[in-house]
């Protein structure tokens, strides 16, 4: 078969919604795009543990602490599912870590914002996990098999993340005036960055068309963002809080909410490393990796020694 035959067979599979699996032929750019997208996604899950990890020791009750621990542990799991999905495309785990720690790889900008009060744990679960779920549910039908399977597993686990966040806010919204103010403040700070999680608007997203053609993406950034706005506005009413956008208004004709302009300058600033916590996050991540080195080395030395020993036993037996 020539490259053209392979390409045709690949296109046909995509059109027929037949998943692409690791050993199938795929165009180089498809592989590259997936490696970039899946590894960025994995990095986001891993770095995403840091802002919430900040509150584990200060959770207001044992129940909240157990829940937050479980959530953060899930995010570690999500990172691991995704790293192994990316590895099936031929990149090593260490290479991906290296790209993260050196600042070469990106991760979701949302995690470069600080978590200043307990209400942030609620707002993150509700808005940040909510936006992530919107994106991830769509990716359960992405064309690359291992990525889609990782997404299915992740989506099953995500739903409690959002619910526990909403529960935190709901409880606080029924509390004292100070607690209600904390809720509103957290929503005010997390709303716009959450909308930015869907990425640049469609007319500024040059790779979208190709990703849609490959069925790596199933919906555009703006489509998913709109969907998120529509459901979230309704949820916010239950909290009795407001979203910080005076232009938010139901549009009868479109059947969607209109919303105000996103501050893209802020978005690109944070993407390019100048958010409030970029430096702190990467440092924490790199430090954890370096501090774990002796454990990795010791495990290696131990297994080498065991191999040597069982090797000498075998030769005696023979």
């Amino acid at each position: 078969m020539t490259v053209r035959d392979f390409q045709e067979a690949f296109d046909e599979k995509i059109d027929k919604e037949i998943a692409i699996e690791p050993r199938d032929w795929m165009p180089d750019n498809y592989r590259k795009t997936l490696i970039r997208q899946i590894s960025q996604h994995a990095h986001s899950e891993i770095v995403g543990m840091l802002p919430e990890g900040n509150w584990i020791t200060r959770a207001p009750s044992l129940r909240r602490k157990a829940v937050l621990l479980a959530k953060v542990q899930d995010e570690a799991g999500h990172g691991l599912y995704l790293y192994s999905a990316a590895e099936t495309l031929g990149i090593s785990r260490d290479e991906m870590y290296d790209q993260l720690h050196s600042g070469k790889a990106k991760y979701s900008s949302i995690f470069n914002y600080p978590t200043t009060t307990w209400a942030d744990m609620g707002a993150i679960g509700w808005l940040v996990d909510g936006a992530a779920i919107m994106n991830q549910v769509a990716l359960c039908r992405t064309s690359y098999g291992p990525y889609a399977r990782a997404m299915v597993r992740i989506c099953k686990e995500e739903s409690f993340h959002q619910r526990q966040g909403f529960e935190i806010l709901l409880q606080m919204s029924k509390g004292t005036e100070i607690q209600r103010r904390m809720v509103q403040d957290a929503i005010d700070r997390w709303w716009w960055p959450s909308l930015m999680m869907f990425g640049p608007s469609d007319d500024n997203s040059p790779n979208t068309a190709q990703s849609m053609r490959w069925r790596v993406k199933r919906f555009t950034n703006d489509e998913l963002r709109q969907r998120f706005v529509d459901v979230t506005v309704e949820q916010c009413k239950i909290l009795g809080m407001t979203l910080p956008d005076p232009e938010l208004k139901w549009n009868e004709e479109k059947g969607h909410y209109d919303f105000g302009a996103i501050n893209w300058e802020e978005f690109w600033n944070v993407v390019n490393g100048n958010g409030p916590c970029n430096k702190e996050r990467l440092e924490a991540r790199a430090k954890a990796w370096e501090n774990g080195k002796w454990v990795r080395d010791a495990a290696f030395a131990y297994s080498e020694k065991r191999k040597e020993r069982s090797g000498s036993k075998d030769s005696k037996a023979a």
Partner: peptide, 13 residues
């Protein structure tokens, strides 16, 4: 299965 990257410091898959 994916070709194993023969990265020496990496634990096996």
């Amino acid at each position: 299965m994916p070709e194993q990257n023969s990265n020496k410091n990496e634990w096996p898959l």
